[in-house]
Design a binder for these strands. Structure first.
Lengths: 157, 157
DNA sequence: GTCATTGCAAATGGTTTGCATTGTA
DNA sequence: TACAATGCAAACCATTTGCAATGAC
């Protein structure tokens, strides 16, 4: 589906929920579509949006992003300690972030099936496809024996 | 093991790493031991600490908590959007938080075994026992058909 | 005695909010 | 026209930091 078409579809989705379509929302959605699979932070998103659409205030981007999130159109992901980054909903996935080098690995939502089943069976808890971040160490850092801020054996001074 | 004894053990653990044992650290650890299984936020922790030990500054609590975290003695957990809460390391567990009513359900680290295996097998990624928060809806809210900030059908107005 | 730790006050940084104005439906 | 959305500046709040004084080893 061409990008312009997808944009219209998303805008219709908004209207259908009684959410008004404005320049800011159109622009933010357009940028998110452009970004494809990448995750964009608020500042970056604001910058990109302004390249095409004048003076859209950062606070507006915040409010826009929140509106889109409530409409289920985008997802917020907090990778490690970085500020929240956004991406269109759709292919739900999660991230594993290396605490030593910061590398991130993506994994599909299906990898949580087992956990989901356990949560439902035991607690009746229905897990959302909300973004999840797992911390740990990537292949390279494990191989190297590198250890992040965690537990380094006695090093005195 | 009596609480005082456990405190000493933890303090020794600190000394063994070359971390100095101070009033603030003793006090914070004592409170965390007292809190048992509960998670405590920074402000609350500072308040409790001050009940026994005078004028310990909030920034000191922050620094103390960070030092203890680096030593692997405590864990930080961010439940939903609340500020970070702390608890002693040990019985690693995770939380599922209901996005409608805020109820939290605890689940054991073992519930992540399957995910862990997948991450290792496919990416060589070694997941930490770091705290994880899963969002979703609890049994009651699922039953009631309540829906949090998520997707409420067209409401125009 | 040395150097980590603390108290304090000030800075930071991401995010939110009140209000008058603008623009969508 | 009515009311949601925006721009802007100010407020917020958790967390961090610089520095001189203090205290652990």
């Amino acid at each position: 589906m061409p990008s312009a078409r997808r944009l219209d579809a998303l805008l219709d989705q908004l209207r259908a929920r009684g959410v008004r379509v404005t320049a800011a929302r159109r622009a933010v959605l357009a940028e998110l579509l452009d970004a494809g699979h990448d995750h964009i932070g608020i500042e970056e998103l604001a910058t990109r949006v302004r390249r095409r659409t004048p003076a859209i205030h950062l606070s507006t981007v915040y409010r826009t992003v929140e509106a889109l999130r409530e409409s289920g159109i985008l997802r917020a992901a907090r990778l490690g300690d970085q500020p929240v980054a956004y991406h269109l909903a759709g292919d739900t996935h999660h991230h594993a972030v290396c605490r030593s080098c910061g590398t991130t690995v993506e994994f599909p939502d299906a990898d949580l099936d087992d956990l989901r089943r356990r949560l439902v069976d035991r607690h009746g808890f229905a897990a959302d496809p909300e973004h999840l971040t797992v911390s740990g160490r990537c292949r390279r850092c494990v191989g190297r024996g590198v250890d992040g801020s965690g537990s380094a054996a006695g090093h005195h001074r």
